[in-house]
Design a protein around this nucleic acid. Sequence first.
DNA 1: TGCAAAGCGGAGGATGCCTCCGTATCGTAT
DNA 2: ATACGATACGGAGGCATCCTCCGCTTTGCA
Lengths: 192, 192
Amino acid sequence: MAPQPLPCARPTRADAARNYDRLVTAARETFAEHGTDTSLEEIARRAGVGIGTLYRRFPSRTALLEAVYVDEIQSVCDRAYDFDRELEPFDALAAWFRSFLGYGLSKGSLASELTVALGKESPFFQICKANVQEAGHLLLDKAKAAGEVRPDVELFDIMRLVGGINMGRDIEPEQAHRLLDIVLCGLRPAAS
Amino acid sequence: MAPQPLPCARPTRADAARNYDRLVTAARETFAEHGTDTSLEEIARRAGVGIGTLYRRFPSRTALLEAVYVDEIQSVCDRAYDFDRELEPFDALAAWFRSFLGYGLSKGSLASELTVALGKESPFFQICKANVQEAGHLLLDKAKAAGEVRPDVELFDIMRLVGGINMGRDIEPEQAHRLLDIVLCGLRPAAS
DNA sequence: TGCAAAGCGGAGGATGCCTCCGTATCGTAT
DNA sequence: ATACGATACGGAGGCATCCTCCGCTTTGCA
């Protein structure tokens, strides 16, 4: 089942489109290097456009984050379908969350911001949420059906826990994986 | 074993002490109402002192947070000893984390900031960390000794997970407790 | 080629961070 | 009670960032 395409406000006029791309690229690089609280003026400077251009295209910092996230989110979703094909139910679920966590570890605070954003109201994030939800549910439901996950666990419960793992910045990857392990163990049905 | 007293820079001169108290009170209220990223000028205004006074006493936002946290942290630690007396090992541990979580839910983002701060280097937070660690280890070690918690789990693993639960702001208490449940289940030894 | 629509970019107002220093207050020694 | 040194007060102002607004430029269609 193909997820909906994410909406993308990329403008049609040549100069506008060029600047849009430059801004998104600059933002992606700058966010990765210096965290998501970098000055927007810095990003505009790096993209070689005026601050006005940035603000016209992206009315808020969040709007810019959205544009940066879109590819990443898609690739996270795609991996879910790969894992579903290649692994047993619980392992597929575990692998997906591991990759989600790994993505977060390598991208600084992007993933945790994403997790926060998944709770937001914006139309963009509604669609993201739907896509992630669809991919995640595929794995989670199979794992539940196989009796390997407690039936009362919600997908976004797990997403939130995993997102919270590297929320506080600069966690050791080793500790992060130990934390994920705890969460994964917590998903299993009561042993009794 | 009594934890170390937390250092407190409350000044001795009458006017200074009065302003110190006003500032801490105003900061506690404002942080609880509007989150910890409130303008410091707003806090000074609310306390009825000049911005200069605030900065002389608290050279950084963190220093102000420290002063606000000190009581809260102490009371979190104290509760651990109560639970230890009154409950069975695992229940005591669970109750402590539940109260920690509840404290976070009622205090907005204070608790999650605290969790982040526990990783910080400042002398203040080193002592906080030591106190929390002492209280937490008491409960965790007993639970491990009773065979009710996996031996490879670290205290700060759990602290971080619990802290991460309401990191993203505005979580429903019901969901928060479901998440804590998952974490608690994850602590139990493998069923095999 | 001409022209309207769309886009550009930076000046500038608003707000927040933090420093500095002239003035006011406190506590003590006489 | 008084006087004086130490301490504290508080806001003006320098700097950075956010975001808006509007006169000028570019684009793409007819």
